[in-house]
């Protein structure tokens, strides 16, 4: 197969990471410290997510990687190839066929099932970090459930922008206890955090793992008079015509021309295969891309 140990990491390391994952699942939203390893990629490219994926992958798994929803970006392609080479697992771009999905900045549009695991790459796991620089203090705040400061951030948003302007990494409270950073997913995805699949979050540089077990209550923080609202661009996808998916805006020329398209490429492609066509789209052809 290859000269690597299965999924690159040695068995002791994977065991250590699995322990952290189990602890994370037992205490939803709690950041479990773990001994993050040096990976053959720079920090910020998903070293945490890769280690979590390596620890949960089995030879029978089918692996999918998305970066901002897309299967074909550099980050997604190289991580997918990495596990193809080091673990020899099957890979796919179809959300429904994958058993482990590593993601950066998005949750797939298609609803995940109970037999699927979603692994997030997390840059800064501490939601209070930009308000309270001391790790000793933030840990104490988590321990004592002192979360008033999180609302100060939302207050600042409203006072400056007239509305809660935080559009990604929107803080959530998990199972009525821990306040958690859902990684930089758009707040459009926040309602999807209550799902059937297991969600694991890995932050490599910050050496933290946390998790949301299936069907766990996840509440986005807000004010009584400024309730949480998931937002997306007020358009339909120009390729597949979907009105319910999160959209990327693309500038297409120097004359102000632009188009909106699903950020989830698999969702968009499968809709086009089914015959949906958007305003600027062309009917799907197998060899078009």
């Amino acid at each position: 197969m290859s000269d690597y140990n299965f999924a690159y990491l040695d068995e002791q390391t994977k065991r250590m990471i699995r322990r952290a994952i189990l602890k994370g699942l037992a205490i939803p939203g709690y950041q479990v410290p773990f001994a993050s390893r040096e990976m053959p990629m720079p920090y910020g490219w998903g070293t945490g997510g890769v280690q979590v994926s390596a620890a949960v992958l089995t030879p029978d798994d089918t692996f999918k990687v998305i970066d901002q929803g897309a299967d074909d970006t550099t980050n997604a392609v190289s991580i997918r190839r990495f596990f193809q080479k080091t673990a020899g697992v099957a890979v796919t771009e179809a959300t429904s066929q994958a058993s482990v999905i590593q993601t950066r900045h998005r949750i797939p549009e298609e609803e995940l099932r109970a037999d699927q695991i979603l692994v997030y790459q997390v840059p800064i796991p501490e939601p209070l970090r930009f308000l309270e620089p001391s790790e000793v203090e933030t840990r104490k705040m988590h321990a004592l459930e002192e979360y008033g400061l999180m609302h100060v951030k939302l207050y600042e948003d409203i006072s400056q922008h007239g509305d809660i302007a935080t559009a990604y990494a929107y803080p959530v409270k998990v199972e009525g206890r821990y306040v958690m950073d859902p990684s930089p997913i758009p707040k459009f995805d926040n309602p999807k955090l209550e799902m059937a699949g297991i969600q694991l979050f890995g932050a490599g540089r910050e050496q933290r793992i946390y998790a949301i077990p299936p069907y766990t209550q996840v509440v986005s923080l807000d004010f009584d008079d400024y309730p949480f609202q998931p937002t997306k661009a007020d358009h339909a996808c120009d390729l597949c015509g979907a009105t319910d998916s999160y959209l990327d805006e693309l500038i297409v020329d120097d004359a102000g021309g632009r188009m909106f398209m699903c950020s989830d490429t698999d969702y968009c492609t499968s809709r086009r295969k089914d015959g949906h066509v958007g305003a600027q789209g062309v009917p799907y052809k197998e060899d078009a891309a």
Binding site: E146, G148, L149, H151, V152, Y155, S159, F223, D224, D225
Partner: peptide, 17 residues
């Protein structure tokens, strides 16, 4: 305003107005 409001939010005030 955020500085003054912090203690209120720390004791669970959740109404921006």
């Amino acid at each position: 305003g955020g500085n003054v409001g912090e203690r209120l939010m720390a004791v669970n005030a959740r109404h921006y107005g």
